[in-house]
Amino acid sequence: MRVESNVIAPAGVTLGALGVLGFSFSLPATRLAVTGGLDPWFVAFGRAAVAGMLAIAYLAFVRAPLPTRDQVRRLLIVALGIVVGFPLFTSLALATQTSAHGAVVIAGLPMSTAVWAVVRAGERPRPAFWLASGVGFLAVLAFIATTGGISGGFGIADVFLLIGVALCGLGYAEGGALARDLGGARTVCWALVVSLPMTVPISLVTMNFSSASGTAWFGFAYVAVISMFLGFFAWYAGLARGGVAKVGQVQLAQPVLTLVWSAFLLAEPVGWTTIIAAIVVLTCVIWTQRSRSTDLITKR
């Protein structure tokens, strides 16, 4: 089945951009939480537990019907990526590494999402799409490398970040495809709810607030309410409307935004290089949107 995705892309891209804006502060907020006295395991699972409670309230308010057995199976895949995998491995990585360094590896997330979109969502991007996203990916890496984002050797934190990116791409692709049936808000909410039997017990076991600072709680509150909950309302709705692989490339702008937030919090200088790089990346994002890239193959 052929989908002229350029017809629906504008709304999808707008929603996706709102989600990326919310996600762009996730690494700095996680860094604040894990370096401010909260256990990385608590940050990862506690934020999902808090978001899960909010999800129950939302689903009850809208009187959402229960998902089918097949949808529950797919929701577990979504949860593996966005509820467990990415929060856990980024929390572990950022306990010893900076958010600016983390942005280097996170730059690969749009490509990860596109690859999983081929595997899980049945999308078949055209060569022009891969060229545009590849150029944007290299532009982000070049920017971070030239501004000092890459530091030190390849360590365990990088392994954690790579695993997180791979799992998050899977969660984005599966969730974006499932959102076509459930809607963006219900997709993330049900993923959080089916995860509660895991997230609540681990949160209780790892909770230790004796040395937690005010900034740690600010970071935790942000990743729980925005990164883990509200941000996905816009993100999955955007993926569903504009195509997983296509709208997923909007996230090429996230590493640049993350570095801006990191500079604001850590008083790192942000000059013309940042502005020029942002323009280049956004140009590549627009290029992907104009590539008319997505064919869908029905999977049942």
Rank of each mutant, 00 (worst) to 15 (best):
G152A: 09
D158V: 11
V159M: 14
V159H: 13
L162G: 02
I163D: 03
L167F: 14
L167I: 14
G169V: 04
E174P: 11
A177M: 05
A179Q: 12
L182W: 06
L182Q: 06
G184Y: 05
A185F: 12
R186N: 06
T187W: 09
T187S: 11
C189W: 05
W190L: 07
V193G: 14
L196Q: 12
P197G: 09
T199N: 12
V200S: 03
P201E: 02
I202D: 04
I202V: 11
V205A: 15
M207E: 07
M207Q: 10
M207R: 12
F209L: 15
G219S: 11
A221Y: 08
V225S: 05
M228I: 01
A234D: 13
A237S: 15
A240W: 07
R241P: 03
G243D: 05
G243Y: 01
G243L: 06
G243W: 00
V244L: 02
A245G: 12
K246G: 06
V247R: 01
Q249G: 03
Q249R: 01
V250K: 08
Q251V: 01
L252P: 13
L252E: 11
A253Q: 02
T258A: 11
V260N: 00
S262P: 10
S262H: 09
A263K: 00
A263R: 00
L265P: 09
L266C: 13
A267Q: 15
E268M: 08
P269A: 11
P269W: 01
V270E: 00
G271Q: 01
W272L: 00
I276M: 08
I276D: 02
A277E: 01
A278T: 02
V280M: 04
